[in-house]
Simulated scan of single mutants.
Amino acid sequence: MPQITVEVVYATREKQKLVNIRVEEGCSAAQAIERSGLLAEFPEINLAASKIGIFAKMVKPETVLRDKDRVEIYRPLIADPKEVRRQRVADGKVMKKGGGEA
């Protein structure tokens, strides 16, 4: 069966890892993640609960990969950006834009 090359990527605050692997055509994003070895290296990854994407576009685990795709495993957000902004507004703090004076 013909093979394709894909990258699988995961990052923590301390470390990022990019793995190039060869898989058979028709391989799903979830299968590529499992074959990449990242689940063993980062045991905190819960593939059933993690969101994944291809080149920053969210996809389902069963999405079939194409040659040179980059599969990204996303970590959950620590803080909801919308909630942080609401809290700043409630506290009367002004956000700076463009590094200039607010």
Rank of each mutant, 00 (worst) to 15 (best):
R88D: 07
E24C: 03
I33S: 09
A30W: 05
M95C: 11
E7P: 01
I54N: 08
A48W: 02
G92I: 05
Y10E: 06
V89T: 07
G26D: 04
N20F: 04
I78T: 14
L39A: 09
R85M: 11
K51Y: 11
S50A: 15
N46Q: 14
E7M: 07
T5C: 07
S28A: 10
S28R: 14
I4D: 08
P81F: 13
P43I: 12
V9Q: 08
I21D: 09
A56G: 01
R85G: 07
A40I: 06
R35P: 00
P76W: 02
V8H: 13
M95I: 13
Q31E: 15
E101Q: 07
P43L: 10
I21L: 15
R70Q: 05
R85Y: 14
V8N: 12
E41S: 12
E72D: 03
R35H: 12
E83D: 12
I4P: 05
K57W: 00
R66Y: 02
K17V: 05
V19A: 03
K60N: 08
G92P: 05
R88I: 04
P2Y: 04
P76N: 06
L38N: 13
V59I: 15
A56Q: 08
V19D: 01
M95R: 11
M58C: 00
I45W: 03
L65N: 09
D80G: 12
E72G: 05
E24T: 15
S28G: 01
A11P: 07
E14G: 08
G53T: 03
A56P: 00
D91P: 00
A30P: 01
A11T: 07
M58F: 14
T5H: 08
D69N: 14
S36G: 08
A90N: 07
M95G: 11
I4Q: 04
A29L: 02
E41K: 11
R75W: 04
T12D: 04
L65K: 11
R66E: 10
S50V: 03
S50M: 08
D69A: 05
K15L: 12
K17P: 00
F55Q: 09
E44T: 13
P43W: 11
V8W: 06
F42D: 11
V64K: 15
G37K: 09
I33K: 04
S50F: 02
P2I: 02
R66M: 03
V59G: 05
K93C: 00
E44C: 09
V94C: 00
E25Y: 04
V84N: 09
V19Y: 05
Y74A: 04
I45T: 09
K93G: 00
V19I: 15
D91S: 13
G53M: 05
G98N: 15
A56V: 07
K51G: 08
P43D: 03
R22Y: 06
I52M: 12
M1A: 14
V9R: 13
E83W: 01
V94N: 14
Q31H: 09
N46C: 09
I78W: 02
A29C: 09
E41Q: 14
K82W: 00
K57I: 03
R86W: 01
I73G: 05
G37L: 09
D80H: 13
